[in-house]
Design a protein around this nucleic acid. Structure first.
Lengths: 169, 169
DNA sequence: CAATGATTTCAACAAAGATTGAAACAAAAG
DNA sequence: CTTTTGTTTCAATCTTTGTTGAAATCATTG
């Protein structure tokens, strides 16, 4: 397989994949492009390469920076801003896990905590009971997963998963 | 907090959440409704409760069944189909993990395997090198996560996470 | 501080995704 | 076989999300 093909396919695949994760296709493509680029890139280079609008590039880059997986870098004597992706895929995965935990898991925990202690108005005991069982279970699962992610994040991805696999096989 | 409120909030929250996960809001709501319902429900009851169209309910239920977290059940002497959710949240989480692995992780592994062994056409050594480093890393991470999920799935969620937390703290 | 170059914002537009509802289909009952 | 009841399909429509491009903002330079 030729370099240019392979590179394009990676960008396409990553863009495709990203849509399954609440991230726009363009963001995914930009991220892939930065991952495989040996040097930081300017927005103009990205526009050129992916044929997308300046506005879109600007917004996507900002969002990638907010996710913490792309960094602005300044090159001495250069006026333009340069962007580079995190190159360590484990670090990247952890950073994504950390953000998703914050954006998705933490709110669930909050929400389920509010739903504890129900006052059975017109409902039957069975109904109240079932609802309680569910919220309690969901809270339990969410809190344990949360704890697990904390540990994983603290100990660094590779170490964590390696240990884990060796311990639990 | 009153029962009816709490129930509605759970349904709203779950529907909201589901959109972050490539699942439509309606599907999430139906799932929440089935989770807290002590008895299996017919599509008519779901339509009534959530005020959504028959077609939507039919398609969403099918999809939930494909995900393996909702089951059709037949009640003797009844002509209608009844649907019930998996009630064990750990089982549910595992089933979702299993499906997501199949739908999202496995394709990445496949794709990265295709991208190994690049023929440097017009590209510089640095560029080829960077691309190779990336695809190799991604493949590595994906395969380890895959292995981890396999172990987790085999040993059952609760056991898995409990062990893991206790071992790695 | 005016001019130039770079970046961001945002209203208008486009694309993708979700939902509806009515027609087609399937299964059981009379 | 016909009717009744229940389920699925799918084109049309609505909703949500993503994208563009030009104007506004910001920053640097002479």
């Amino acid at each position: 397989m030729k370099y240019t093909e392979a590179r394009q396919q990676l960008i396409r695949t990553w863009g495709q994949l990203s849509t399954h994760w609440g991230i726009s296709r363009t963001m995914g493509q930009i991220h892939a492009l930065l991952m495989v680029s040996p040097d930081p890139m300017t927005s103009d280079q990205i526009i050129e390469e992916l044929k997308i609008s300046r506005g879109n590039v600007s917004m996507s880059l900002r969002s990638l920076v907010e996710w913490g997986i792309v960094h602005k870098t300044f090159i001495p004597g250069e006026r333009k801003e340069y962007f580079a992706s995190e190159k360590d895929v484990w670090k990247m995965a952890l950073q994504i896990a950390r953000e998703r935990k914050r954006r998705e898991l933490d709110p669930v925990i909050q929400s389920m905590q509010h739903l504890q202690a129900i006052n059975p108005d017109s409902a039957s005991a069975r109904e109240v009971d079932e609802l309680n069982k569910m919220t309690t279970q969901i809270l339990d699962v969410a809190m344990q997963v949360d704890k697990m992610l904390d540990i994983g994040i603290r100990s660094g991805g590779q170490t964590f998963v390696r240990k884990l696999i060796s311990v639990l096989r």
